[in-house]
Write a protein that binds this DNA or RNA. Structure first.
Lengths: 255, 255
DNA sequence: ACAATAGTGTCTGTTAGACAATATCAT
DNA sequence: ATGATATTGTCTAACAGACACTATTGT
């Protein structure tokens, strides 16, 4: 009809142990393409938009189908529609970005339950290594793998990373990486991993407390060989993120 | 093919004299629909995406064709794809927002030159009056007209307004409303009109000067019955707006 | 006691905002 | 001189960042 195919893709972020240092690092799951164009290369999870589905629902569905993860946050990123982004056909991609907690990553689920995704063709990569096209001979040391990506997905990952890092500094988006309760140390480590720099514990505490987004539960975490930290939870009456008049944008999987 | 039609629409902002007070106010041109759905209602300028055109080019083209204005700035806003936004068919709209200077508004051009748009069916409205669905009997005073809009265009205008107001506070986006040179008073009046509140001239000056986005030309404006103000221009070496890795997004009409 | 992390206090430099004071034009 | 706007100066409160200090646990 229109000569244009409409697709959705999602940049999924999780904090996972770095393959070398072991410290938490922003990571992205990619899917290996099993057909042309770009057969064999790694690409963002996605698929075609079902005419009977909203864009957000399409993103949430394709994301689960291909990678098995259940996001705790899903937001539209940008729509890419350059003429030459897919060889031979005109594809416009509405791209989303998502956050997942470690417990929402379906690690090779039992074949019996859940949607069967091809675990062989899904792999996690260090986000910062994907930001620019793979130039294996540029002399710079590569931590983690930095494959060449299909389509314009390098640029998309770079933009999603920028958006996440910008947003973590002025919103409570970090809770997309955390469970229902957490210590300030855990919250700070999330920020440190996202921003890739260390933060002063004292100043971080004051900032977060002044923001009013968290509430002390009154409980403490015992067992550490140090003073027991307080437990906090996010203030559910405050909005997670200020997306303006669009409000919260959840795939129905928020928890 | 896909069962989905892909459209572009644009929220165009200009500063025009308020119909009552005469002071500059954020205004938006709308186009009266000449066919169903929503025949007779006012709607954002737009059209179908040409498979041979990029999204930005489609937005720029349809915008000129329907309203006759030439934007000085054009940026993607959001993509709207709810199932029920167009009765009877599935339409996904990639929405842009644009800024135009007064001299870029083609006021009923001579029939001989320029693309012939239907001037009878284009009208300018006060932006803030369009933000919420028209409720003519809610008792609140309405300045300017506040028509009921087609589709979900009320929500789109509200979101575009939020984006513009957010962005004017941390970027040099205001130059989209100004010519190549300007006084600090003119620049401040642009900010005041966009934000709809008065700003302290002294503090405004310091903020703008500290931002490094403007440069004094060395010239002054004579003729006023007061101290002659300096002329400034924007520093073209500095980026207009920080759109992250996406960079500048111009329709080719920037000047 | 000691190591380790949690949490508090204090200082400094920067910035936003209110507002006073001075400068320079046209009339 | 007067009115009008431009431009500079000053003061205060709020805030971010650096860093010293105290608190509380397990060993």
């Amino acid at each position: 009809m229109s000569g244009i195919r409409l697709a959705v893709s999602t940049v999924i972020f999780a904090l996972r142990p770095h393959p070398e240092s072991g410290r938490p690092v922003l990571s992205i799951p990619l899917v290996r393409r099993t057909r042309d164009p770009f057969q064999g290369l790694w690409a963002l999870p996605g698929g075609w938009v079902d005419p009977a589905e909203s864009l957000t629902a399409s993103a949430g569905r394709t994301l689960v189908e291909t990678t098995g993860v259940r996001p705790s946050y899903l937001e539209q990123l940008y729509t890419f529609g350059a003429l030459d982004r897919s060889p031979g056909e005109r594809v416009v991609s509405v791209v989303y970005w998502a956050l997942v907690r470690p417990d929402q990553i379906g690690e090779r689920p039992a074949p019996s339950k859940g949607p069967a995704f091809d675990a062989e063709n899904v792999a996690w990569f260090v986000a910062d290594a994907l930001g620019s096209p793979g130039t294996p001979d540029d002399g710079a040391p590569r931590t983690g793998d930095a494959p060449r990506l299909a389509f314009d997905h390098h640029a998309i990952v770079t933009y999603a990373l920028w958006r996440l890092r910008t947003k973590v500094e002025y919103s409570a988006i970090a809770q997309g990486f955390l469970g229902s309760t957490f210590t300030l140390s855990e919250l700070r480590q999330v920020h440190e991993a996202v921003l890739d720099r260390e933060l002063d514990p004292a100043n971080f505490r004051r900032q977060v407390e002044a923001s009013g987004t968290i509430v002390a539960t009154g409980e403490h975490v015992l067992g550490g060989r140090h003073r027991p930290p307080r437990l906090y939870r996010f203030d559910t009456s405050a909005p997670l993120v200020d997306n303006g008049p669009l409000g919260e944008l959840t795939p129905g999987e928020m928890s």
